[in-house]
Simulated scan of single mutants.
Amino acid sequence: MTAAGDRPERLPVRRAGALMSGMDGHPWPALVHGRPAVLVPRRRDAVERLVDAADGWGAYLGGLSTPCEEWAAQLDGARLVARRPGGEVWLDEQLLLSAEWRRGALAHGAVLLVTGEFGNAAEVVGAALAGSLRVLAAPLRFTGRPVD
């Protein structure tokens, strides 16, 4: 997040690659309060991802945000592409998606993007307790089979 007059915070970006588990520092899918989410750790060895309140990012306080219509997420098979307002790719990843995650995505029509000061699944709780998680709900559309 940024303070007034500060430059927007940037997080690294990675192009789609191998399926990820959450313990290797790459984004991974999860269910947060029954809603489909992708947890995106900070990575300092790649291109940065913009995380700016002006784009709809907010602090995660246990509540769930409504979809930010300026964003767009598309799921084609296991590949999730999320785009910022204006169309810039924010996330492009192949994910290990369960049928439950896909059903949740169909039911909610959105995906929660969660990021912050964590490098893997073991560090998320600490980041949440420290108040460093940022969350955004992006409208989701399917271009392949939504459920296996």
Rank of each mutant, 00 (worst) to 15 (best):
W71Y: 04
E100I: 03
A122W: 05
R15V: 11
L61W: 01
V124R: 07
Y60T: 00
E48K: 02
R79S: 07
A37S: 07
Q74I: 04
A54H: 08
M1Y: 04
T143D: 14
G87Y: 00
V147G: 05
D148C: 13
R49E: 09
A99P: 06
R44Q: 15
L112M: 08
M23T: 15
L95R: 01
P41K: 05
S21I: 13
E88A: 15
A122Y: 06
R145S: 12
R44V: 12
R141P: 11
G131A: 09
V47Y: 10
A59T: 08
R84S: 13
A54P: 04
L11F: 14
R15L: 14
E9F: 05
L136T: 06
D55W: 02
G119F: 09
T115C: 14
T66D: 14
L113S: 11
L96S: 11
S132D: 11
R10A: 09
A73P: 02
V13P: 01
R103D: 12
A18Y: 10
R141L: 12
D24A: 15
L75N: 08
L64C: 01
G131V: 10
A138D: 08
A99K: 07
A99E: 12
R43K: 08
S98L: 06
T66L: 11
T115A: 13
R14G: 08
S98D: 07
G17H: 01
W71M: 03
D52E: 10
V125R: 13
S65I: 00
T2V: 12
G119L: 14
L95P: 03
H26L: 15
V89P: 07
S21Q: 15
A137K: 01
M20N: 13
A46L: 12
M23Y: 15
V51F: 07
A138S: 12
R44A: 15
F118I: 11
N120D: 15
A59V: 10
V125A: 15
V13T: 06
G86K: 04
R44W: 10
V124I: 15
W71I: 01
G58V: 10
D52G: 06
A30N: 15
E9I: 03
V38C: 02
D6V: 04
R79K: 06
P85F: 03
G144Y: 06
G34I: 01
V89S: 11
E93H: 01
R83E: 10
